[in-house]
Protein backbone atom coordinates (compact mmCIF):
# COMPACT_ATOMS: atom_id res chain seq x y z
CA UNK A 1 0.00 0.00 0.00
CA UNK A 2 1.28 3.46 -0.79
CA UNK A 3 0.93 6.49 1.43
CA UNK A 4 -2.26 7.67 -0.27
CA UNK A 5 -3.97 4.29 0.04
CA UNK A 6 -3.03 4.07 3.70
CA UNK A 7 -4.41 7.55 4.39
CA UNK A 8 -7.61 6.56 2.60
CA UNK A 9 -8.00 3.36 4.61
CA UNK A 10 -7.14 5.20 7.82
CA UNK A 11 -9.80 7.80 7.02
CA UNK A 12 -12.34 4.97 6.82
CA UNK A 13 -11.16 3.71 10.23
CA UNK A 14 -11.60 7.19 11.74
CA UNK A 15 -15.02 7.59 10.12
CA UNK A 16 -16.14 4.27 11.60
CA UNK A 17 -14.78 4.89 15.09
CA UNK A 18 -16.27 8.40 15.26
CA UNK A 19 -19.35 7.32 13.31
CA UNK A 20 -18.89 10.41 11.15
CA UNK A 21 -18.61 10.19 7.37
CA UNK A 22 -17.51 13.79 7.09
CA UNK A 23 -14.07 13.27 8.62
CA UNK A 24 -11.28 14.11 6.20
CA UNK A 25 -7.71 13.26 7.24
CA UNK A 26 -4.48 14.82 6.10
CA UNK A 27 -1.06 13.93 7.40
CA UNK A 28 -1.18 17.13 9.50
CA UNK A 29 -4.43 16.21 11.30
CA UNK A 30 -3.97 15.94 15.09
CA UNK A 31 -6.21 15.14 18.04
CA UNK A 32 -7.01 18.83 18.37
CA UNK A 33 -8.67 18.85 14.95
CA UNK A 34 -11.21 16.14 15.63
CA UNK A 35 -14.03 16.40 18.14
CA UNK A 36 -13.95 13.53 20.59
CA UNK A 37 -10.39 12.34 19.87
CA UNK A 38 -9.48 11.83 23.52
CA UNK A 39 -7.40 9.21 25.31
CA UNK A 40 -10.35 6.80 25.30
CA UNK A 41 -11.09 6.97 21.59
CA UNK A 42 -7.37 6.97 20.93
CA UNK A 43 -7.24 3.38 22.17
CA UNK A 44 -10.19 2.49 19.97
CA UNK A 45 -8.50 4.05 16.94
CA UNK A 46 -5.36 2.05 17.58
CA UNK A 47 -7.20 -1.25 17.95
CA UNK A 48 -9.41 -0.55 14.92
CA UNK A 49 -6.32 0.30 12.84
CA UNK A 50 -4.59 -2.87 14.04
CA UNK A 51 -7.58 -4.89 12.87
CA UNK A 52 -7.89 -3.04 9.56
CA UNK A 53 -4.22 -3.41 8.59
CA UNK A 54 -3.47 -6.68 10.36
CA UNK A 55 -0.61 -5.20 12.37
CA UNK A 56 0.32 -4.61 16.03
CA UNK A 57 1.65 -1.40 17.54
CA UNK A 58 4.24 -1.80 20.27
CA UNK A 59 3.70 -0.14 23.65
CA UNK A 60 6.64 2.17 22.98
CA UNK A 61 5.06 3.33 19.70
CA UNK A 62 1.76 4.45 21.19
CA UNK A 63 3.08 7.87 22.22
CA UNK A 64 3.94 8.78 18.63
CA UNK A 65 0.46 8.20 17.25
CA UNK A 66 -1.04 11.54 18.17
CA UNK A 67 -0.77 12.85 14.63
CA UNK A 68 -2.17 11.21 11.52
CA UNK A 69 1.05 11.60 9.54
CA UNK A 70 3.02 9.56 12.09
CA UNK A 71 0.19 7.08 12.32
CA UNK A 72 0.25 6.48 8.54
CA UNK A 73 4.05 6.36 8.40
CA UNK A 74 4.25 3.78 11.15
CA UNK A 75 1.59 1.67 9.44
CA UNK A 76 3.54 1.84 6.19
CA UNK A 77 6.74 0.72 7.91
CA UNK A 78 4.93 -2.18 9.56
CA UNK A 79 3.30 -3.25 6.34
CA UNK A 80 6.71 -3.29 4.67
CA UNK A 81 6.22 -4.04 1.01
CA UNK A 82 2.67 -5.40 1.49
Amino acid sequence: MNEKEILQALTQVFQDVFDDDDIVLTSETTADDIDGWDSQTHVLLIVAAEQRFGIKFRTAELESLKNVGHFAQLIQTKLGGR
Partner: peptide, 8 residues
Protein backbone atom coordinates in the same frame (compact mmCIF):
# COMPACT_ATOMS: atom_id res chain seq x y z
CA UNK B 1 -20.35 -7.18 14.20
CA UNK B 2 -16.96 -5.98 15.36
CA UNK B 3 -16.56 -3.39 18.10
CA UNK B 4 -16.74 -0.31 15.86
CA UNK B 5 -19.91 -1.49 14.10
CA UNK B 6 -21.33 -2.38 17.52
CA UNK B 7 -20.57 1.12 18.83
CA UNK B 8 -22.23 2.64 15.75
Amino acid sequence: RDFTLTAR
